[in-house]
Computed example of a mutant assay.
Amino acid sequence: MSREHEWVDDEAGPVVRPYAVARGRTRSASSEVDLLATVVSTGLPAPAQAELSTQHRRLLSAVAAQNRPVVEIASELGLPVGVVRVLLGDLLEHGLVSVRPPLDKAAAPSESLLREVINGLRAL
């Protein structure tokens, strides 16, 4: 039987604990994988020694076509951000993804603009 087999409950969906997906690891092997970092596939083939799980492959598919923030990928895959960071660290070590750090704070919107947006949303 394959290591990648996921137990599935017809009503609940996959029944696998997050730490099992990350093979018990809680930290990424790379410090580059920030919550707001953007990730894109390099398009390189997986090395022969790389043991990629189903979740690794799903993650690669999610970043194949475009740059995407780590938090967006986690949301799409339905995995905790910590697990996605660990899996991305694995892919980064194998050269399968490229990670760009988040924008500088100077390029981010100002606090006053964010407050205006929040107030506008509340007014809806």
Rank of each mutant, 00 (worst) to 15 (best):
G82E: 10
H94N: 15
G78L: 07
Y19D: 11
L77H: 03
R17C: 05
L36D: 11
Y19M: 13
S41Q: 04
N67V: 11
V99T: 12
T42A: 14
V63R: 00
A123K: 05
A20G: 02
G43A: 13
E116K: 08
V16G: 01
R115G: 05
E76W: 00
P45V: 04
L91T: 10
R122A: 15
V15Y: 02
G13E: 15
A20L: 11
P45E: 08
A65W: 00
P14L: 09
T26V: 15
E111C: 10
P45A: 09
P80A: 14
G95P: 02
R17D: 12
A12R: 08
L52K: 01
T38V: 09
P69E: 06
R27C: 06
S31C: 09
L92R: 04
G89Q: 03
S31A: 15
R85K: 07
N67K: 12
Q55C: 14
T38C: 06
T54M: 03
V15P: 02
H56S: 13
G120N: 08
E32H: 03
E4G: 07
V83C: 03
L92W: 00
D10G: 13
V84Y: 02
E111R: 14
R23K: 07
A62S: 15
E72F: 02
G24Y: 01
L124C: 10
